[in-house]
Nucleic acid binder design. Structure first.
Length: 579
RNA sequence: CGGGGCGUAGCUUAGCCUGGUAAAGCGCUUGGUUUGGGACCAAGAGACCGGAGGUUCAAAUCCUCUCGCCCCGACCA
């Protein structure tokens, strides 16, 4: 390809609305152009990058016996009603829904469990046809609360979604393993450094879920990991060994203290001159269930925080959020800041973090304005609490699997693999005839890769002050050969020679034949991030060209006769596994 | 949804406070000169200042409403 025939428009200034590196550089390089919040056009160069990701994904999934299909993006409401997800997705506002000319409700697919389950139920009738794993690569639509960071969180984005169907649990485990293997191969080949972490299974339930995270400071997720034993988990899921509190002794008599205007843990520490870990805060939550809403009280040690995802799971609720001021007043009968287990309305479900299970003589609120209680003992001074692991793990906490401690990094979720079990097949009545002669629901797994997010994540990992540094495996071109002065025949001749020879060698090469000043051309090639460049300039008459490697900025003058060999060697070296 | 910020040419911005009908750089077009680090000269094209309403002799500028975009947060008792 010749650059003079490719639409390339780079910007000299950073776009005003881009903050994170990938957004800024992709926009400045003209790779993406915004149409609206979270909606982008991909340029010819960007599409080349994305197609390279497609190819890698296809090769690795096909290797694991998955089959590519294409499902409808626009889907009927009925399918979503059949799985029970229509109301929730519409209520959450995440789904783009619309009506056809007859007034029938439709949606633009945010995901495809319903469609695929329905399809497989039609096409697969016997256990003899299983296992099967179907995938597609297409645009997904989600009306995100806050689209941001360019391709990181869009409202329309490209996703690879795969769904496995097995006869039983063991089959599912095997399908899951195959996808785990494929995913590792895919992200290795995309040239990104990633880590695989335990993830929350969410309201969907199921036996396992792991996320593939590209490590980057701008990642939206926090990951806790242990260097010693390689435990790694999304903070939403992570467990930790929390330092125990010194034994507070046998239960002592309850004491009430007037604590006017003392509401927060910090104020209580000062007022009583006691450490936060002997206090227990009581937080009221509004939990949403399929058929009702309920206010619950959650107790947490004063120095720890509540993990709302764990809380949601412990309650088996669809969602939880902090109760608002009015709800707090109504349920506790007191102002915000004085809720507690003592004197709590008995209809209110009381949960407590497992760290409080053995702890005696707590300092808590007691649902009375301006009053806190000392020597509170759960069960004695309150109703019995349900104990669950509810606390948020933090960096520095003990690793749950060994004696080392946890560290934190940020990550970008580029892949997620999930054991669904029979959630959808049961809900939708999707069955096959088992060997026993009886119908059985499919054991399903689902697997996603953010195909348009992956290159953005790669940029977050690979850039410098000059621009993007594409991993060679997904670069728009592996090598760019450029001449500086179109009017000098010798330059054009040498460049064409190298270009054609690289082409003949099967290397993905482009010729930068644009008419622009040398300085501008160098800046442009650096911004666009091509891994290897060959520039033919002032020493063309001596058959000398400049060979450059973008990653380390290395540039050397070499005889033109060596150019092709040097390119091949560099590509070989650059496409090795990431360090 | 709450908070903050911003909408002026394709891009980046000035002008707004203190009203007088829009400015610069980059980019683009034409001609010429240049060709190793975002060249130079000359001549051009390009914005009814996000939209609507209001105040005023007069509004990019002041007021009201609205739309869009960016950032932070989802308020831990």
């Amino acid at each position: 390809m010749r650059f003079s025939q490719i639409l390339i428009h780079t910007l000299r200034d950073d776009p005003a609305d881009a903050e994170v590196p990938s957004h800024r550089l992709l926009a400045r390089g003209g790779f993406i152009v915004k149409a609206a919040a979270g909606l982008y056009s991909y340029s010819p160069l960007m599409w080349r990058v994305i197609k390279k990701v497609f190819n890698i994904v296809r090769e690795e999934l096909d290797r694991e016996d998955a089959q590519e299909v294409m499902l409808p993006i626009m889907q009927p409401k009925e399918l979503w009603v059949s799985s029970g997800r229509w109301d929730r997705y519409v209520a959450d506002g995440i789904m783009f829904s619309l009506q056809d000319r007859k007034g029938a409700d439709m949606c633009l697919g945010p995901t495809h469990e319903e469609v695929i389950t329905s399809y497989v139920n039609t096409a697969v009738n016997s256990y003899k046809q299983l296992p099967i794993n179907l995938y597609q690569i297409q645009d997904k639509f989600r009306d995100e609360i806050r689209p941001r960071f360019g391709l990181m969180r869009g409202r329309e984005f490209i996703m690879m979604d795969a769904y496995s169907f097995d006869v039983d649990r063991a089959g599912l485990d095997n399908s899951y393993q195959k996808m785990d293997r494929a995913y590792r191969a895919i992200f290795d080949r995309c040239g990104v450094k990633y880590t695989v972490v335990d993830a929350d299974a969410g309201a969907i339930g199921g036996a396992g879920s792991q996320e593939f995270m590209v490590v980057a400071d701008t990642g939206e997720d926090a990951i806790l990991y242990c260097d010693a034993c390689k435990y790694a988990a999304n903070v939403e899921k992570a467990s930790a060994k929390v330092t125990a509190v010194a034994d507070q002794g046998e239960p002592k008599p309850l004491e009430r203290h007037d604590t006017p205007e003392v509401r927060t843990v910090e104020q209580l520490q000062e007022f009583f001159d006691l450490p936060a870990e002997v206090m227990a805060k009581t937080v009221l939550y509004n939990a949403t269930f399929a058929d009702r809403e309920e206010i619950v009280a959650v107790m947490m040690r004063g120095d720890l925080e509540i993990n709302e995802v764990k809380l949601c799971n412990a309650l088996d609720a669809l969602a939880v959020k902090l109760a608002d001021e009015q709800q707090i007043k109504k349920v506790s009968g007191a102002e915000v800041g004085f809720a507690g287990p003592v004197g709590l309305n008995e209809d209110v479900r009381l949960l407590a973090d497992s760290t409080l299970e053995k702890q005696t003589n707590l300092l808590t609120g007691c649902n009375e304005n301006g009053v806190h209680c000392l020597n509170v003992n759960l069960g004695r001074d309150s109703s019995e609490a349900e104990f669950h692991e509810l606390c948020l793990a933090r960096a520095g906490d003990g690793c749950p699997k060994c004696d080392d401690s946890l560290q934190e990094v940020r990550g970008i979720e580029v892949g997620h693999i999930f054991k669904l079990g029979t959630k959808y097949s049961s809900a939708m009545g999707a069955t096959f005839m088992a060997e026993s002669g009886k119908p059985a629901p499919f054991e399903m797994g689902c697997y996603g890769i953010g195909v348009s997010r992956t290159p953005a994540a790669a940029v977050e990992q690979h850039y410098d002050d000059k621009g993007i540094v594409w991993p060679v495996q997904i670069a728009p071109f592996e090598v760019v050969v450029a001449f500086l002065d179109k009017k000098r025949d010798k330059q054009v001749e040498l460049a064409m020679g190298v270009y054609e020879e690289l082409q003949a060698a099967g290397i993905d090469v482009a010729l930068d034949d644009r008419k622009m000043s040398p300085g501008a051309k160098f800046k442009d090639l650096e911004l666009l991030g091509f891994p290897v460049t060959v520039v033919v300039g002032r020493k063309a008459d001596e058959d000398i060209v400049e060979f450059g490697i973008r990653k380390d900025g290395e540039k050397s003058e070499i005889p033109v006769s060596e150019a092709v060999a040097r390119c091949k060697a560099a590509l070989e070296q650059l496409s090795g596994p990431m360090q």
